[in-house]
């Protein structure tokens, strides 16, 4: 039992005038405050073994999703704890600074250790693929979700 999704923020269509105003606001705000980075990322929803992984992929940030690819989601029990392995591949030529984290759920779908699993930094060089591993914090965990998002270049907002 496992799950996964990719989230990316969809760009909204704005009228040209509004865009102009927004742009000017950003330009002006730029000198004092850095613009908040887009931090939405990749995640997953409940999924069972052998299930088609792509069905569970949720994209909240289309730009990021274009540059990433998740495959080979595997799960097993190690010392009674759910262990997850998945491959994160970069489709982008340049390096990407990313962070990922796992959410854990019990059989009833209740979140376990909410907000305690840390975001782990991972740097993917051009076209590189890496294996992300997650281990459930206790034996009650039966499903999971994983999120990937960018690390903001400037540490202003989380």
């Amino acid at each position: 039992m496992f799950n996964s999704k990719i989230t990316t923020s969809t760009s909204k269509k704005v009228t040209s005038s509004l865009a102009m105003i927004l742009l000017s606001t950003m330009v002006i705000a730029g000198c004092a405050n850095k613009t908040p980075p887009v931090t939405a990322g990749t995640g997953t929803s409940a999924m069972t073994q052998g299930d088609d992984f792509s069905k569970h992929l949720e994209v909240h940030n289309a730009d990021l999703a274009k540059r990433l690819f998740i495959s080979d989601v595997k799960s097993r029990k190690s010392n009674d704890l759910l262990e997850i392995n998945l491959t994160l591949t970069s489709r982008y030529e340049k390096s990407q600074k990313l962070q990922y984290h796992f959410n854990w759920f019990d059989e009833a779908g209740f979140v376990i250790e909410a907000g305690k699993t840390p975001w782990v930094p991972v740097e993917l060089h051009g076209k590189q693929s890496t294996t992300l591993r997650g281990l459930a914090p206790n034996t009650k965990v039966s499903t999971f979700s994983v999120y990937v998002r960018e690390i903001p270049e400037k540490a202003y907002e989380y």
Partner: peptide, 24 residues
């Protein structure tokens, strides 16, 4: 107003994600 506010240096307090990657 936007021009004037843009460069004003004001401190803002926000709650953040305690587990997010921090690169201060």
């Amino acid at each position: 107003l936007v021009f004037a506010a843009g460069c004003a240096n004001k401190s803002v307090v926000r709650y953040g994600d305690a587990t997010a990657v921090e690169t201060t």
